[in-house]
């Protein structure tokens, strides 16, 4: 698989994306402070996100009591499940170390 040219192209694209990210961070952090236009562009982008994205949905969730109840019940069910999983993983780890001895 790793020797296929199409897969090599994908790896190169992924690599380029990470180098782009690293350079974007360096350029942005070293750049001079954003001017008013850029700040306004960002703020309007955030406002659009509030209106049209899942962020807006999560805001409306706050006023939806029925949905909040479902989320609470789901988290009540999930949290013990995660704790049991962690305990099971610990048991398995201990058992494996005992077998190794």
């Amino acid at each position: 698989m790793m020797q296929k040219p199409w897969f090599k192209i994908i790896i190169w694209l992924i690599t380029i994306s990470f180098f782009f990210l690293a350079t974007a961070i360096i350029i942005s952090s070293l750049a001079p402070s954003p001017d008013e236009d850029k700040s306004m562009l960002y703020m309007s982008g955030m406002m659009n996100a509030m209106d049209s994205s899942l962020m807006g949905l999560s805001m409306s969730m706050e006023s939806d009591i029925y949905l909040k109840t479902i989320v609470k019940k789901a988290s009540d069910f999930t949290l013990p499940f995660i704790l049991y999983s962690m305990a099971a993983a610990l048991l398995v780890k201990l058992r494996r170390s005992q077998i190794d001895r």
Partner: peptide, 18 residues
């Protein structure tokens, strides 16, 4: 992250958020 970084996606914060 902030106004300094918005250019990465042309300040389309809505698309970035989703």
């Amino acid at each position: 992250v902030g106004p300094r970084y918005g250019w990465v996606l042309n300040y389309d914060i809505g698309a970035a958020d989703i």
